[in-house]
Design a protein around this nucleic acid. Structure first.
Length: 273
DNA sequence: CGCTCCACCTGAACGC
DNA sequence: TGCGTTCAGGTGGAGC
């Protein structure tokens, strides 16, 4: 599910609802997420007051008053956060693995059928991001910095953009969309892009991510906002999941699907060179 | 070190 | 209806 726009949406909604909330109780119903949740997890979180909520790459970072511990949340492929105004029910869905109850009565549930997601309490979250590339929506992500990080990359531009060490936050959906907008063929070698192409790519990335955030993210199957609503950016896809349809740009050529590293890439061979 | 590939899981969609 | 197969938005680590 979640690439940068979906994680950003969830993070903003959590910030809106949970800043200054005090954790009353943590209940772990399934410890076997991507990383096993240790037994001390619940006790270490109880009574803490939430003081910050930020997104970095596809991670949500929850900070607390009076401790340097940070709760690091990753949604994996199928993770969802739901926020309930009051804990009305102790009926849990099978895949609701972690339940936070706040002293206000609010509740947060982490749901993740595939269990590729994770919740980790760590004192040094910065170490996680040591090797992660720049935030695409920040000012320090530019044509120059992108060109620089693609130097010597022997992989395709598709693979390079999926590589979180080069740029943070893109996933399989948005890479297809962004390459189409920048009119760059997904099989081009990353190192061969010139500065103009990098510039087109940077501006396509910023625009598409911003539009996707404005639309609440993309919901294909798993992504939900914290109140259970779907995002709507999938209605604006130019190429992703659009195999066989006319390219919305040239109106002539059909969108094609190819496999790169065993993952689908969608593109228009007339528009993308 | 850089790159590709696989494993990690469940559920939905599809074909027979 | 049921059963088998395939595919899915991510990523850490194995292997080359």
């Amino acid at each position: 599910m979640p690439e940068l726009p979906e994680v950003e949406i969830v993070c903003r909604e959590m910030r809106q609802a949970l800043l200054t909330q005090i954790i009353q109780k943590v209940e772990v119903r399934e410890r076997r997420l991507r990383f096993l949740i240790p037994p001390a997890f619940e006790k270490n979180l109880e009574h803490l007051t939430i003081s910050s909520l930020q997104r970095r790459a596809k991670y949500i970072l929850v900070g607390f008053q009076g401790t340097s511990d940070t709760l690091v949340i990753h949604l994996g492929m199928s993770g969802r956060i739901s926020l309930l105004p009051s804990a009305e029910s102790t009926l849990y869905h099978k895949h609701e693995h972690v339940i936070f109850t706040f002293t206000s009565g609010k509740e947060m549930r982490f749901f993740d059928p595939r269990r590729f997601g994770s919740m980790v309490l760590m004192t040094t979250p910065a170490s996680l991001f040591h090797k992660i590339g720049p935030e695409p929506l920040s000012k320090d992500f530019s044509a120059i910095t992108l060109k620089d990080s693609l130097l010597n990359k022997k992989s395709s531009i598709k693979s390079a953009l999926l590589n979180q060490h080069i740029i943070a936050g893109l996933g399989n959906i948005y890479v297809s969309e962004v390459l189409h907008k920048a009119q760059i063929h997904p099989e081009r070698l990353a190192k061969d892009l010139n500065l103009y192409e990098c510039d087109a790519l940077v501006s396509a990335i910023k625009k598409i991510l911003q539009r996707a955030i404005a639309a609440g993210g993309s919901t294909l199957r798993d992504h939900q906002r914290t109140n259970g609503e779907a995002g709507s950016f999938q209605k604006q896809f130019a190429v992703y999941n659009q195999e066989g349809k006319n390219c919305p740009n040239c109106q002539e050529s059909m969108i094609e699907r190819i496999l790169q590293a065993n993952r689908s890439t969608y593109f228009c061979k007339k528009c993308q060179h």
